Computed example of a mutant assay.
Amino acid sequence: MGGMTSRLQPPKRTVRAWLSDMDGVLVHEEEPIPGAADFIARLTGTGRPFLLLTNNSIYTPRDLQARLHRSGIDVPEDAIWTSALATAQFLDNQRPGGSAYVIGEAGLTTAMHEIGYVLSEREPEYVVLGETRTYSFEAITTAIRLIEKGARFIATNPDVSGPSIHGPIPATGSVAALITKATGVEPYFVGKPNPLMMRSALNRIDAHSETTVMVGDRMDTDVISGLEAGLRTILVLTGSTKADQIERFPYRPTHVVDSVADLVDLVDEWNDESQEVVDFAP
């Protein structure tokens, strides 16, 4: 890998909790990445607090749990945290019991219903844009008109494209850009790289940033959001960011490894309170 992967030394501070991205780290679409099932099994079996994070707002945690199970990866439903859940939590904290016009699928609409929001296009307080495989021109037009009338603009995540079996497809960020161009209003993005997503994940598993590691495959979302939230970061080279691209960024991950398979044994090793204190650096 051009010398980019680094020797796996113990960290200065013990690692008590793990956050991890899903696509590109554990799976490619529904194909498991070698070592992913073992990594999750080790976390589950040893009782380490962990949470899987995804910017994908299409699916509910139950849907994602079923998809991972079909890939041979068994994850508790409550160990999955989506941008839809983070968005709903954010709105519940900001304006409890509010109303929103929502563009999205079950992952987002279910999360909004569960916090008690009314989904309506009649003078909603928010327009909430999520991901869907079937963006409707009519729905986008409605969103534009509501924002022009004063509705606040929220988007689940800034990803401009997403993966599919046929290649990249437009995602939330691309449609948000269209709406912004039409209205002049920028959305507030809740998902990665907003550190708000990371903080909400840490709170969910009662973890502290100083003793938690973020595992991801993208420098521009996973690594930077972990960095800005005060976490140590591990970049795996099985997803979006390749080894020769790392030096292009003005920030670096704490560690670079070939794949999640390299992390299986470290779940226990890095939790050893008696280990010698050495540098955790590439």
Rank of each mutant, 00 (worst) to 15 (best):
K242C: 04
Y101H: 10
W18L: 12
M112I: 01
G230H: 07
Y126E: 02
M112E: 06
S120F: 06
A36V: 05
M214S: 09
T211P: 02
I144R: 05
A281E: 15
Y188P: 00
Y59D: 07
A37H: 08
I234H: 05
T233H: 11
S71T: 11
F39Q: 10
Y188A: 07
T44C: 07
I115Q: 14
K12H: 00
G184Q: 08
T5P: 01
V185L: 04
R95C: 09
A207P: 03
V260G: 09
T183V: 09
I154T: 01
P34N: 04
I103D: 06
G239M: 01
A229N: 01
A177V: 00
V127I: 04
T109M: 03
D279F: 00
H208R: 13
I179T: 07
F153I: 12
V215A: 06
E29W: 15
E148H: 14
S200L: 15
F280W: 13
L119C: 07
L64G: 02
G167N: 03
A111P: 07
I224F: 07
I169H: 06
S71P: 11
L227T: 14
A88T: 00
P10E: 01
A106R: 10
G24A: 09
H28Q: 10
G173K: 05
I80E: 03
G162H: 08
A155T: 03
G150Y: 08
H69A: 15
V223T: 13
A243S: 12
R48P: 03
G150C: 08
G45D: 08
T14L: 06
A66F: 06
P32L: 02
T221I: 11
K181H: 15
F50T: 05
T142F: 02
A41K: 09
E114H: 15
D159S: 08
I33G: 07
L68Q: 00
E228C: 04
V175R: 04
A84R: 04
G104S: 01
I33Y: 10
